[in-house]
Design a protein around this nucleic acid. Structure first.
Lengths: 238, 238
DNA sequence: TTTTGAAGTTTGATATATCAGACTCCGAAG
DNA sequence: CTTCGGAGTCTGATATATCAAACTTCAAAA
């Protein structure tokens, strides 16, 4: 992790900000958190491994303060556990990932049910368009586009549901990254299955059928989750 | 928020602390987190209110380091939002609490489904006993006992489901405290309704009917959640 | 009167020093 | 040989100092 980060144009009495920095400067702790999270989810730490704060701080080239903040966040997410005065332990393993899938499925189900009740005309229209675009991308096997559309689809449902907290929680239950995503989406059969599911969910929401939307969403998330699980851990469980 | 929180032998390390706190001494940040969480959930901060780290630290009589750690945890829970370089904002309000109920319901549902599949004989037996005891306590209107048994009931289901992460997430979705709990459980009609629901859930788990256990649990959590919501916020929404 | 911009103030971000609990390990006593 | 204990070391917990971004304010210019 690089120490330097303030090479932005240092407000030199110019206009009030024309150049919006794309990524907006994140706090150091957020970099650290992201870095650690990725490392944990990639299995770079053995499950149960004791971590040393000082060593980690040194390795990441930051002081212990932002590191500690990042660790507290990861602790709140459940990825690590803190034994007071004794250190940190990584809690993430295949079983944990499996529970993340279940949590994600449960939460997305709840959101889908909300969306079926609350979606306005605009949201329904956008959702339909997204699914239509997804159909095209699936035919063309445009993986990158498909990944983006997938996020878009779920994001639109979240917005239609007017859920903030639920959406946040869902976002926390993601244990795979773009690499795994590309691997998954490469399977054309799976893409077609996913498209079927997406259409079904969309239809249920349009029909205001909250129960069906919820059930379909749950099944969809669990199915694709298991796929990711096998991609990341190379195994499946019942 | 009351100003007093730390009568621990803080400050000088002069005397070697003769009074040993009974349980494992919690880290200061955990005290701070609990205190802040309670204050937020009690509505002691206006929603949207900007918070000042230094002022908070001073009020709680701790330095900014443990305070920051506590804030990061609350941020990860979604109760506060951090605007980088600009401060903290409390995000909790009635709408947030409502989403917490939905999240809790969704997660407890998932756990109940797992429990129906995974519960062993011992777990089933304990669950049955707990429900029986709850029936007695309900008859006697033993509120304190009922509250304890209620936690016990859900705890046993969590254990039977062998869920760790899901149980953690559920625990985070609690916006009421013992005070609200006592208020709710005072209503005898509600206690009977809750008992009915608990029995039904127990029966579904014993019958290995995951779908029914899940559905009943979801309905139970949502119903009682709405009750808490009205107790805490004095209003309900659809 | 409105606008702007620069200095001063506020406040979060980061680094570092220090404190104290917990572990290790070895030697002495039983 | 086993057990107990205490000194030394490791490491997390806490406090504090410093840095830098963002906000405020006020005066000067248009």
């Amino acid at each position: 992790m690089q120490r330097r980060m303030g090479n932005q144009p240092t407000r030199q009495a110019t206009r009030p900000r024309m150049v919006l920095v794309p990524g907006a400067r994140l706090a150091l702790r957020d970099h650290v958190r992201h870095q650690l999270r990725t490392a944990i989810l990639s299995g770079n730490f053995a499950p149960g491994e004791r971590l040393n704060e000082r060593a980690l701080a040194e390795e990441l080239e930051v002081s212990t303060t932002p590191l500690k903040e990042a660790l507290r966040q990861l602790e709140a997410e459940g990825l690590i556990e803190v034994l007071p005065r004794r250190g940190l332990v990584v809690r993430y393993d295949a079983g944990f990932a499996e529970e993340m899938i279940l949590a994600r499925a449960a939460l997305e189900s709840a959101i889908a049910a909300l969306a079926a009740r609350r979606a306005d005309d605009g949201a329904i229209e956008r959702l339909g368009e997204t699914v239509a675009t997804m159909a095209e991308a699936t035919e063309k096997a445009d993986i990158a586009h498909l990944i983006r559309l997938n996020e878009c689809f779920h994001g639109e449902i979240h917005r239609a549901a007017q859920s903030v907290h639920l959406a946040r929680l869902v976002a926390q239950q993601q244990f795979y990254d773009d690499t795994a995503r590309r691997v998954i989406h490469r399977d054309h059969n799976d893409s077609r299955a996913a498209l079927e599911e997406h259409s079904g969910i969309c239809a249920a929401i349009v029909a205001r059928d909250a129960d069906r939307a919820s059930a379909l969403m749950g099944a969809h998330v669990q199915r694709s989750g298991r796929l990711y699980l096998s991609a990341v851990f190379g195994k499946e469980r019942s």
